[in-house]
């Protein structure tokens, strides 16, 4: 009995390591990055487009815009394909085929991001340059690469959401004479709505946070892109590109960039978790 209590206590301490890790990350990122944000002020940091470490100018506005634009682009692709796949796999596809396709989608999630970036550089970038113009390294190329990368996330969470819809909903709808497609979009998608929204938000988190693939295809210029064919720089690529040689205030500015990224990610995470949880509750009711 006493031994059992001791084990329970030890396990509890270990179980807190994930939370402690999260806390440590938060503390250290903010500790390194926050002072510079406070010093530059919101206007000088978030809303300035001047990034010139030599001149001690640290404005990340263009990178914020860059991150948001490619994330939006990626989500269009990721959602259309991811949701489409989730529907095929849960509703239209024979069980045996789904059993083969699902692990393949998971494999897509396992491919290293450097490989995605590389494939983007050697196929999509030249294609865009030759057929649409511009440097090829662009919002469009980045969005496509990111879209494919977030697709597995969107797919697998949407599948879970669709599977949690009670089977009687589907049968009821079919029994009322609705076609499969009508039942899908009027009944299934509606019932799985919150899970699907959570899937999309988590996918957004992935896209905003992706680094290596983005560095390779975004072009890393400091201007705000004005067309889909323009190059850009994101928050993540800014950090990864310059971290290697940054010192002093420059390094602090990179951590400040990470603070910005961290806050965006946390908002997305918490939104997704809350929405997903609410969805689970309403399905159980």
């Amino acid at each position: 009995m006493k031994q059992d209590k001791a084990i329970a206590f030890a396990l509890m301490l270990i179980a807190l390591s994930a939370v402690s890790g999260l806390a440590l990350i938060t503390v250290f990122i903010f500790k390194e990055g926050l002072p510079l944000i406070l010093k530059s002020g919101a206007g000088g940091f978030f809303f300035s487009t001047d990034w010139d470490p030599k001149a001690k100018q640290f404005g990340i506005f263009s990178m914020i815009v860059g991150s948001l634009v490619v994330t939006a682009g990626a989500m269009i692709i990721g959602t259309v394909f991811g949701l489409g796949l989730a529907i095929v796999l849960t509703i239209f596809c024979p069980k045996a085929l789904a059993a083969i396709l699902k692990p393949l989608i998971e494999l897509l999630a396992g491919i290293p991001s450097v490989v995605y970036g590389f494939i983007g550089v050697v196929t999509i970038v030249p294609f865009i340059r030759d057929y649409f113009g511009g440097p090829g390294l662009s919002v469009l190329a980045t969005s496509i690469v990111l879209g494919v990368m977030v697709l597995p996330t969107v797919t697998s969470i949407s599948i879970d959401a669709l599977k949690s819809v009670p089977r009687s909903y589907w049968e009821g709808s079919i029994a009322l004479g609705a076609t499969e497609w009508q039942s899908t979009h009027m009944v299934m998608l509606k019932a799985a709505r919150s899970g699907i929204v959570a899937a999309i938000i988590l996918g957004m988190g992935r896209a905003v946070g992706e680094t290596m693939a983005v560095i390779m295809v975004c072009g890393n210029t400091l201007e705000i892109p004005s067309t889909p064919l323009d190059p850009l720089r994101t928050l993540t690529s800014n950090i990864a590109l310059e971290m290697g040689y940054a010192t002093g205030e420059h390094r602090e500015a990179l951590f400040a960039t990470a603070v910005t990224l961290f806050v965006i990610i946390m908002i997305l995470n918490i939104a997704a978790l809350t929405i997903a949880r609410r969805g689970i509750m309403s399905n159980n009711r």
């Binding site: 440590l24 990224l261 918490i270 978790l273």
Partner: peptide, 13 residues
């Protein structure tokens, strides 16, 4: 939350 944190932030940390 930890699962959602991007790898670059893990790297910085």
């Amino acid at each position: 939350c930890l699962a959602g944190i991007p790898s670059i932030i893990f790297g910085l940390f």
